[in-house]
């Protein structure tokens, strides 16, 4: 597995662990959610967006790489 795959996997782990932490905090605090829980929950959204941007960026990079490779092969 290459380094970019590790980065994407880390993003997913972060995205899944953030709400789990918030749920645990929510259970601990009782019925009234505080700012900390909301902050952890909001992290899920930012991490999801980062993961999607990561996937899109990786795909664009892969397409560009293949295009360059085929252009080089045509020249050679």
């Amino acid at each position: 597995m290459k380094s970019h795959s590790y980065i994407l996997m880390t993003l997913v782990i972060l995205a899944t662990s953030a709400p789990t932490l918030a749920l645990a905090q929510y259970e601990k605090e009782g019925d009234q959610p505080d700012m900390m829980i909301l902050t952890i929950f909001s992290l899920t959204l930012y991490i999801t967006i980062s993961a999607i941007l990561g996937v899109v960026g990786y795909s664009i990079w892969k397409v560009i790489k293949i295009r360059r490779k085929s252009a080089k092969m045509r020249l050679a």
Binding site: L8, M9, L11, V12, A15, T16, T48, A51, I52, V55, V56, Y58, S59, I60, K62, V63, I66
Partner: peptide, 18 residues
């Protein structure tokens, strides 16, 4: 090719299930 890469990402599927 780009859409196949995005659509078939296991990471995206894992995120969706989670």
């Amino acid at each position: 090719f780009f859409s196949r890469l995005v659509h078939g990402q296991a990471i995206l599927a894992a995120l969706l299930v989670t």
